[in-house]
C-alpha cells in the first residue's frame, strides 16, 4: 500500500507523543513501541485515524507514548472498548495493547468474543509470563512450577496457550514474534496492520525485573535457531543453526527430523497460512519448547467478513427493507387512534 499523493509523508517521530516513556530500563516494551512507530507511517493512513486502546498493566501505558488518539482504560476491558469504538466508527484503525494478565486473565472473556466476532483491529499481546505492574505475581502464562511472589513453592496452575485460544476462537489472523527480533517483529506487525479482521499477535516480551530471560531460548542469538522455527507461507518448516532440521508429519503428529540420510525438504510440513481449516495452525500452536522449536511468524491468515462490515451492511439493508427514517412514523408505531 502506498501513501496517497496528498498526504504528508509521516515518520516514526510523528507518532511519538511528548510524554516521557516510563518503562524499566531494558524492558522489551521499548522495542515494540519503536517498531510500531516505525511501521505506522508505512501504511499510508493519516495519523488521526489511529486509535490505541489499552487496559491495565505495564504494556497498557503504550497509548500515552503514541501521538494518536488513545485510551488507557481499565483492567481487561480494552477489547470491549475497542469493539464499541470500531463499530461506532469503522473508519478508525484500532489497535489494542494488552498483556498476559490483562488480556488472558481478567479480560479473557473479551478476548474470546472480540476474536470470534472478527472485529477489525490489531491485538498486541505483550506476553512476559508475569504480573509486572503489580510487582511479580504469576500470570496465566507463567510456567508450571514457576516461583513467584504468590507461588513461593511453584505455580500449580497449568498455563494457557494464547495462540491455541485465539485459534479455537476462530481467529482470522494469528502470529507470534519476539520483542528483540526487531526485523521479524516489524514484519509481523506490518502484516497484522494490513489484515482485514482481528489480528492477534503474541509478542514474547522480556520483563527484566520480575521474569528476566523467560524467553532466552527464543531470543538469545546463540541458541534460538535450535529453539524456534520461522513460519513462511509456502515453505517447508526448517530450523536449526545449520538449517538442517525440519518438522515432518508422522500420521497426525508433528516430529522433528534431521535433514540428510534420505530425509529432505520435500518430506517436511509446508506452511500454508491460508488454510480454511484451522487444525494445522492449532497443531503448530501446541509445539512448545523444549520438545519442539516454537513457531514464529504468521500461523494463520484467512479472509472472513468483519463484524463491523456486516453491521454496516445490515443498516443499509434495513433502510432498503424497512424504509428510510421518518421520526413521526417511528414515534407513532403501528397502531394509533385520534381523540377529537
Amino acid at each position: 500500500m502506498s501513501a496517497p499523493m496528498n498526504l504528508p509523508t509521516l515518520t516514526a517521530k510523528d507518532f511519538a507523543s511528548d510524554q516521557e516513556v516510563r518503562w524499566c530500563p531494558g524492558c522489551g516494551d521499548y522495542s515494540i513501541l519503536a517498531q510500531v512507530k516505525k511501521i505506522l507511517p508505512t501504511l499510508g493512513i493519516p495519523k488521526e485515524k489511529f486509535l490505541f486502546v489499552s487496559g491495565i498493566g505495564c504494556s497498557s501505558r503504550f497509548p500515552y507514548y503514541m501521538n494518536t488518539y488513545g485510551m488507557h482504560s481499565i483492567h481487561g476491558r480494552a477489547l470491549a472498548i475497542a469493539t464499541g469504538a470500531k463499530v461506532a466508527n469503522p473508519d478508525l484503525k484500532v489497535w489494542v495493547v494488552t498483556g498476559d494478565g490483562d488480556g488472558l486473565s481478567i479480560g479473557g472473556n473479551h478476548l474470546l468474543h472480540a476474536i470470534r466476532r472478527n472485529v477489525e483491529m490489531v491485538i498486541l499481546l505483550f506476553d512476559n509470563r508475569i504480573y509486572g505492574l503489580t510487582k511479580g505475581q504469576y500470570s496465566p502464562t507463567s510456567v508450571h512450577g514457576q516461583k513467584t511472589k504468590t507461588s513461593p513453592l511453584g505455580v500449580v496452575d497449568y498455563p494457557i496457550h494464547p495462540l491455541s485460544v485465539a485459534i479455537a476462537a476462530e481467529a482470522t489472523f494469528v502470529a507470534r514474534t519476539v520483542d528483540v527480533d526487531v526485523k521479524h517483529l516489524g514484519e509481523v506487525l506490518s502484516a497484522a496492520a494490513r489484515h482485514q479482521g482481528t489480528a492477534f499477535v503474541q509478542i514474547y516480551q522480556n520483563c527484566v525485573i520480575f521474569n528476566d530471560n523467560a524467553f532466552e531460548y527464543a531470543s538469545d542469538k546463540s541458541i534460538k535457531s535450535d529453539n524456534i522455527v520461522y513460519l513462511e507461507h509456502g515453505k517447508p518448516l526448517i530450523f536449526g543453526k545449520n538449517s538442517d532440521k525440519g518438522i515432518r508429519m508422522n500420521g497426525t503428529h508433528p516430529e522433528v527430523v534431521q535433514l540428510g540420510n534420505g530425509v529432505d525438504a520435500s518430506q517436511l510440513l509446508v506452511h500454508d497460512e491460508t488454510l480454511g481449516d484451522s487444525s494445522v495452525a492449532f497443531m503448530l500452536s501446541r509445539m512448545s519448547h523444549p520438545e519442539f522449536p516454537e513457531p514464529m511468524g504468521i500461523f494463520r491468515q484467512v479472509v472472513r467478513p468483519t463484524f463491523e462490515g456486516q453491521m454496516t451492511d445490515q443498516l443499509a439493508k434495513a433502510r432498503k427493507i424497512w424504509g428510510e427514517a421518518n421520526m413521526d412514523l417511528l414515534i407513532q408505531g403501528t397502531e394509533t387512534w385520534t381523540v377529537n
Binding site: A80, A82, T83, G84, A85, K86, A88, N89, N109, H113
Partner: peptide
C-alpha cells in the same frame, strides 16, 4: 455484548468516538 462489563465498556468506546 458478551457480558455486562463489555456492554458498558463498548458503550464507552463508542462514546469516545462520537456516538
Amino acid at each position: 455484548a458478551e457480558d455486562e462489563i463489555a456492554a458498558v465498556t463498548s458503550s464507552i468506546g463508542a462514546a469516545y468516538v462520537g456516538a
